[in-house]
């Protein structure tokens, strides 16, 4: 019973936060709603008995990546480009067509999925030790590649920011 109640609350929260990200004019408020969406997602992971994934989602996504986003929004002092906005509000008919096409596409996708059957059949889920052992035995090479990726990101950040 609790499982369903929590699922519905978190799902509604997640979707509405995601919609607000797109509808807000102010980029900082959009970023805040995106954080809310990620937190709701972490709650959904916890509800599905994946506490490690939920914790890592909060630590990395909501706690590091979105902090970077919010920093950038605050540092950049973005004004919404008014002329671009007004140019596109005049095109009412093409907007309507694109909206209808996209909604039809999305609805077809959702209706075509056999929901209970399409979910992956995990027997009882993995413990963290199993995930860790897998990470360092079978997936060791992608793991080392990740460190290379992080190194590239570090060097790239310095190069971008320290142009003399």
């Amino acid at each position: 019973m609790w499982h369903d109640i929590i699922f519905w609350i978190l799902a509604v929260l997640c979707v509405s936060c995601a919609l607000c990200v797109v509808w807000q004019r102010n980029p900082v408020v959009s970023a805040v709603f995106l954080v809310g969406s990620f937190l709701a997602l972490a709650g959904l992971y916890l509800n599905l008995s994946a506490p490690f994934l939920a914790a890592i989602q909060v630590i990395i996504y909501a706690g590091a990546i979105m902090v970077l986003f919010v920093f950038v929004m605050m540092l950049l002092d973005l004004h919404h480009p008014l002329d671009l906005y007004f140019r596109f509000t005049k095109l009412k008919f093409p907007k309507l067509i694109v909206l209808l096409l996209f909604s039809w596409f999305l609805c077809t996708l959702i209706l075509a999925t056999a929901f209970p059957l399409a979910a992956p059949q995990t027997s009882q889920g993995f413990t963290i030790s199993q995930i860790a052992t897998l990470l360092f035995s079978k997936y060791a090479f992608p793991f080392e590649l990740t460190s290379l990726l992080l190194l590239i990101a570090m060097v790239g950040g310095v190069v971008l920011a320290k142009k003399k």
Binding site: A64, I65, F71, V72
Partner: peptide, 13 residues
């Protein structure tokens, strides 16, 4: 501040 945030992200990962 932006640089610090990027380095924080990388070390957090």
């Amino acid at each position: 501040f932006y640089l610090i945030a990027i380095f924080f992200l990388i070390f957090d990962i």
